[in-house]
Each structure stands twice: as structure tokens, then as C-alpha cells.
Nucleic acid binder design. Structure first.
Length: 584
DNA sequence: CAACGGACTTAGGATTAAGAAC
DNA sequence: GTTCTTAATCCTAAGTCCGTTG
């Protein structure tokens, strides 16, 4: 049912492909830093499989226990107040607090919730509560709304106190010791119980995600470390010491029966090294990509169907970023469209049920092959029926060590950023204009990768505010222009030093205002262009940070303008090694 | 050799913190 | 200061990829 999300790169931008150049060195393992800042990224390399020699931590922090509702807050069934057992009440609050969410209007969500809720009820409750339609959670809902509001109006001191408590918690549970270094943990809290919120029309939405207990949790730490203590009166499911994995604790969640892990924060050394390695693999692809492309083009005409399918799939992975679980119903072929020949129209839901829609002109053999692959098939059939992700990746491994479908995405994203930065940045621009160029380059990648977001509910309003500001600024500019004209006439008449300085002042004022106006309208453009595009995913996962850092250095843009504090910590490895001459 | 499970990465929405406007 | 907006961070679902298993 899943469509591997590879069909991404927009046709227009795939043409921005790079001139071949020898891949640069500096592979993890044979590491060297261009700028030696500390030893953190320079320690000797372990065997790749082994992730640590020492690991010590406090175990996960468990979600706080359920606090029963106060007496004044009541649940009603069929109009009559009803006191629920603690277990049933807890699950009722999960639903009640979501009352203003769209989920609670969905039939599947309601059905799953009600089904699981009834399992938590006492026999007597189950006897009474038979229809969700007769349940009234409004008091419960109001209680949580009020509670959220109350949090907002706390005094400065109270807020400070809460902040300190959170900080203490972070200090106690949020760090581990890994090979002698204190490292930040990513998710040290267990996920609280609640109702499952799947994306798209997930069949399990609304099901009860049950509370994680110490008895569910497997602890992973070094044998000789201080073993974390389970909460009083409880025990761990298991304590093990597996240094070939990165996780500190794990449990099986109750919805999909999959495993959830406590792992390190991206700013940790181990995660940083993995990210570095990922980008080095992508950089290595540069040296192979021409050869790979000519080979798959040749394979479009292969005698063997499997090889042909693989070649077309690979072409999509490379050119568009997608894939082998594409179904017939996802694709439409147009002999001619938009003034182009051989146009392929893609329309399907990808990861997180985000729609991918694109029309791409393709080479004739690709088009002919698609016709062939789709012939006599039902809409639900796979286009690449002879292909699996495993066989495809196996082939990729033969082409280049470490090569998988994912690497193409990283490669194309990073290459595009570098190209776009080169094309858009002008050295003489202001910092603000350079940042706009950066955002545009980033946006080009986000569009390629189909990174979308829902238009925020406040978009129209904030756009309106910006437009108002622009209007005000325009009036100021007009006024300043009139004053400048007046001053010029004045100076012509007087010709003295005083009127000259007034004239200069007016000129500068107009210039400043015009600059501000330009910046505001640029912001408006930026905002509009960003309406449905999310930059953060590509920025965090696909763009080699060394490209951005080198760009900052080359064009004298403070790196804080590009990366927030957390992002700078995540990319500490790149900050330590990238000089202004870094080339991806 | 398909399917399954484990480990790890990627993803957008929700929540919270910071910043700007009043 | 207080309030409203915007930006940053948090959260956890949903992918990819690989190794195992029946």
C-alpha cells in the first residue's frame, strides 16, 4: 500500500544538474578537519558495527500518573451525570480533551475509540454506556481548556519555577555517558497514553495507546555501568548490553506492535558522525553518477524485463526521486501535454499522506517502457512488478559501495542547494538579500523533495498585517519623496550649506525608507512562496550543512542567520570542519 | 524469496518560547 | 508590563533499509 516516496524532484530543477567533477576526499574514517577545533570529532574510529564501549544512563522518565478529575467536572450519559471508574475516566479524558479536533468527527476514529474505551470500563459501565452519541464530554473538555488557559496566566515566578523543574528533569534524565562523554538524549520521556492519531485515513486512528510501564521497557547499557533503577515497586522487562545498537531503552507500542526507542539527540557525537557519513556517501555518488546514468539509459532497451523495469525505476529515483511501489493508478501517460511530448502525470499519496502531483516530460524510451509496464494491468497493480526494493538496492550496492535509493535524494538535494546558491547569491547584496537568496535556494530543494505543510490558519491574517505595513511604508516613501522635492527646490533657491544638509538628510531618509519597503515586499514574497512549503525537513536532513556554512563564510553572513541554536549544535561537526572553500 | 521485525531516519503538526507590538 | 505573532523546539508517526526466518 505504500508508495515509496521518491518521485520528488521537479522537472525544471533536475536540469540544474552539475558538471562532473572529481569527488573530494575527507571520508569519515580517514578523517581530517580543516580547522582543528577540539578533539570531539577527531577521536579514533571504532569498528563500524560497534556503537559504544561505555553507556550509562538513568532510564526513561515515565509520563506522570493519571490525576482524576475534580468533583465539579462531570461526564454525562444520555443527559444524566455519571461518575466513571478511574480507568474509564482516564480514557474519557483522552477523548474529551480532543473534542475540538477534527479527529473526533471521523467515524473510524470514533468507532475505534469507543471500542477500546469500552474495554476499560467496568461491567456496570459497559452495561450503561452503549452509544458514543449519547456521551457528553463537554465538561471534561472545558476543564482542559480552562487548565491550559490557567497555565498561560501564571505569574513570572510560577513560570520560572516550572522552567526550573523541567531543567532539573532534563539534567537528571536527559543525559547519558557514552564513552566518557556526557551526551544529550533525544526523547528521554516515555510517550504518554492517549488516543492514536494516525495520518491520512489510518484504520487504527482513535485506538487507545496504552501507558508505558517499566515492565514494558528494555534497558540497554554497559554491563559495568550503574544500571538505572526502575521506579519504586516496578521492574524492567529486561536489562541488556548490546553495543551494536544506538538505543538506550525500548518498548513495544500497543497500536502497531512496533518498537519505540530512546535514542541520542542529534547534537550527540554518534548521531553527528552518522549524519556526516551519510553526506560523505552522497558526495561519493558524484564520482559514479555519470556512469550510473549512462548504464540505466542503456538498460532501457534491455532484453530482460526486470532489467528494464529497474532501469526506469532508477531513472525516477535519480531524476524525480521515486519508485518501485508505484501503482498503475498513480500514473497517467500523455503523448502530449503542456507543449511537451511524452508527459508522465503522477498523482498519489506519499509519506504522511502528502499528495505528490507532478507532470514530467520524459525521454521516449521511458515513456514507451511505462506503456509496456502498464499494459493489461489493473489500477492496483504495481508498475514495477518484477522489482522489489531489496533487489533494487542490491543492484545499487554493486554500482557503488553504500549506495541506496535514499542516497540519490541526499545527493540531488545537496547539489541543488549548492547550484542554487551559486546562481542566486551576489556578493554586493545586503545581508538581508543574501538570506533571501539562501531561503530561495532552500525552497527550491524543499519543492523538489515535495516537502509540504498545511497553510496555517493565521496565514491570511498575518499576510494582511504585512500588506498593511507595506502600505504604510509606501505612504512614508511618497511623503519622503515629496519632502525631498521640496528640499531640492529650497536648496536651488537658497544655495547655502544649511539647505544642502537638509537636502542630504531628506535624500538619506528616502533611501532608507525605500530599502525598508523593498525588504518588506521581499518578506511578503518570501512568505507567500513559503505558504505551503516546509523548509525544515530538507534543511535538517538532506542539505549537507557544510555547503551552508561555507556559503556563510564566503559571503560574510553570520551562521546564526541560517541555523538556530539547536541546529548549530546538531551541525557542530560541520561547523568544526567546513571552510569557506568547501565543495560538496 | 517473500514477509517480518528491528533499528534508525525522515516528516509535518502541536506545543512552547521568544520576539514584536501595543 | 501585557498581548499577540512568529520562530524554535518537541513529539511521535511513518518511512527506509537490512538481516532473519519459515
Amino acid at each position: 500500500m505504500r508508495v515509496v516516496r521518491l518521485l520528488r524532484l521537479r522537472a525544471a530543477l533536475t536540469l540544474l544538474r552539475e558538471v562532473p567533477r572529481p569527488a573530494s576526499r575527507g571520508v569519515p574514517g580517514s578523517r581530517r578537519t580543516q580547522k582543528g577545533s577540539g578533539t570531539r570529532w577527531e577521536e579514533e574510529k571504532r569498528e563500524d558495527r560497534v556503537k559504544w564501549r561505555q553507556l550509562e544512563h538513568k532510564g526513561p522518565y515515565f509520563a506522570p500518573p493519571y490525576e482524576p478529575l475534580p468533583d465539579g467536572v462531570c461526564f454525562f450519559y444520555d443527559g444524566k451525570p455519571m461518575r466513571l471508574s478511574v480507568k474509564a475516566e482516564e480514557v474519557a479524558t483522552f477523548y474529551g480533551r480532543m473534542l475540538d479536533h477534527e479527529y473526533t468527527t471521523k467515524e473510524v476514529f470514533r468507532k475505534n475509540f469507543f471500542n477500546d474505551w469500552r474495554k476499560e470500563m467496568t461491567v456496570e459501565e459497559r452495561e450503561v454506556i452503549k452509544s458514543l452519541d449519547k456521551c457528553d464530554f463537554t465538561e471534561i473538555h472545558r476543564y482542559f481548556v480552562d487548565k491550559a488557559a490557567a497555565r498561560k496566566v501564571l505569574t513570572r515566578e510560577e513560570k520560572q519555577k516550572l522552567k526550573e523543574e523541567a531543567e532539573n528533569l532534563q539534567q537528571e534524565f536527559g543525559y547519558c555517558i557514552l564513552d566518557g562523554h556526557r551526551e544529550k538524549i533525544g526523547n528521554f520521556k516515555t510517550e504518554p497514553p492517549g488516543l492514536f492519531r494516525g495520518r491520512g485515513d489510518h484504520p487504527k486512528m482513535g485506538m487507545l495507546k496504552r501507558r508505558v510501564m517499566p515492565e514494558d521497557v528494555v534497558i540497554n547499557c554497559s554491563r559495568d555501568s550503574k544500571i538505572p533503577k526502575p521506579p519504586a515497586g516496578h521492574q524492567w522487562k529486561e536489562v541488556r548490553s548490546d553495543n551494536t545498537v544506538m538505543w538506550l531503552a525500548a518498548w513495544t507500542e500497543s497500536i502497531q506492535n512496533s518498537i519505540k526507542y530512546v535514542m541520542l539527540n542529534p547534537c550527540s557525537k554518534l548521531k553527528g558522525e552518522k549524519a556526516w557519513q551519510k553526506f560523505e556517501t552522497a558526495r561519493r555518488l558524484r564520482g559514479f553518477v555519470d556512469e550510473i546514468r549512462s548504464q540505466y539509459q542503456a538498460d532501457w532497451k534491455s532484453q530482460e524485463m526486470k532489467t528494464r523495469q529497474r532501469a526506469v525505476a532508477l531513472y525516477f529515483i535519480d531524476k524525480l526521486a521515486g519508485c518501485c511501489s508505484l501503482r498503475v493508478e498513480h500514473v497517467q501517460l500523455h503523448p502530449e501535454a503542456d507543449g511537451c511530448q511524452h508527459v508522465v502525470e503522477f498523482d498519489f499519496l506519499g509519506k504522511d499522506s502528502i499528495r505528490y502531483y507532478n507532470r514530467v516530460p520524459v525521454e521516449k524510451p521511458v515513456y514507451k517502457n511505462l506503456q509496456l509496464f502498464m499494459k493489461n494491468k489493473d489500477p492496483q497493480d504495481d508498475i514495477f512488478d518484477r522489482l522489489t526494493t531489496t533487489s533494487l538496492n542490491k543492484h545499487l550496492h554493486e554500482l557503488m559501495d553504500g549506495l541506496t535509493a535514499k542516497v540519490f535524494r541526499t545527493y540531488n538535494a545537496s547539489v541543488t542547494l549548492q547550484e542554487q546558491l551559486r546562481a542566486l547569491t551576489r556578493a554586493e547584496d545586503s545581508i538581508a538579500a543574501k538570506i533571501l537568496s539562501y531561503n530561495r535556494a532552500n525552497r527550491a530543494v524543499a519543492i523538489l523533495c515535495n516537502h509540504q505543510r498545511a497553510t496555517s490558519s493565521t496565514f491570511e491574517k498575518s499576510m494582511q498585517n504585512l500588506q498593511t505595513k507595506i502600505q504604510v511604508k509606501k505612504e512614508q516613501v511618497a511623503e519622503a519623496r515629496a519632502e525631498l522635492r521640496k528640499a531640492r527646490a529650497e536648496h536651488k533657491a537658497q544655495g547655502d550649506g544649511k539647505s544642502r544638509s537638509v537636502l542630504e538628510k531628506k535624500r538619506r531618509l528616502l533611501e532608507k525608507l525605500q530599502e525598508q519597503l523593498a525588504w518588506l515586499s521581499v518578506q511578503a514574497t518570501d512568505k507567500e512562496e513559503n505558504k505551503q512549503v516546509a523548509l525544515s525537513t530538507s534543511k535538517l536532513n538532506y542539505l549537507d550543512p557544510r555547503i551552508s556554512i561555507a556559503w556563510c563564510k564566503r559571503f560574510r553572513v553570520p551562521v546564526e542567520k541560517i541555523y538556530s541554536k539547536t541546529q548549530r549544535e546538531r551541525f557542530a561537526w560541520a561547523l568544526a570542519m567546513a571552510g569557506e572553500d568547501f565543495e560538496f
